[in-house]
């Protein structure tokens, strides 16, 4: 039933769900950034595996773009984090609750 080609996809789905769970449950902003990276890399893994299964290179080439974007995203995220620390004296999201959502 589950062939060899499915295994990377199952792993990708697992990583994506783990990343999403981390982002939704944890309060430490650094850990949140790690969770976001995990989600993006799960998508990358899925792209590469599909690309191989489809016998094309499109997906694998696109992964390079995504890796670059993920690096830029981390840089922006960390600078926002520094700003958050300067204002609240903590990087935990439960300290920053001045807005009511």
């Amino acid at each position: 039933m589950i062939s060899e080609a499915h295994l990377p996809q199952i792993l990708a789905l697992f990583l994506f769900v783990v990343g999403m769970t981390i982002v939704l449950l944890r309060r430490n902003t650094i850990v949140l950034l790690m969770g976001i990276e995990l989600m993006l890399n799960a998508a990358n893994l899925s792209l590469v595996a599909f690309s191989r299964a489809n016998g094309q290179l499109d997906g694998q080439v696109m992964v390079f773009f995504v890796i670059t974007i993920a690096a830029a995203e981390s840089a922006v995220g960390l600078s926002i984090l520094v700003n958050l620390y300067r204002n609240f004296g903590s990087i935990n999201t439960d300290r920053a609750k001045s807005l009511q959502g």
Binding site: Q9, A12, F16, G19, M20, V23, T29, L32, I36, M39, L40, A42, A43, S46, L47, A49, F50, S51, A53, N54, D58, G59, V66, E73, V76, G77, I80, L81, N83, L84, R86, N87, F88, T93, A96, K97, S98, L99
Partner: peptide, 30 residues
């Protein structure tokens, strides 16, 4: 303070949305 907090919230939630979009396009590609 409100700006720092708003930026962080927007960044985290926006990144989840982008990652979801990316995973969805990976599935469509597959």
């Amino acid at each position: 303070k409100s700006s720092a907090e708003a930026g962080m919230k927007y960044f985290i939630l926006g990144s989840i949305a982008s990652a979801t979009f990316l995973y969805g396009s990976a599935l469509i590609y597959g």
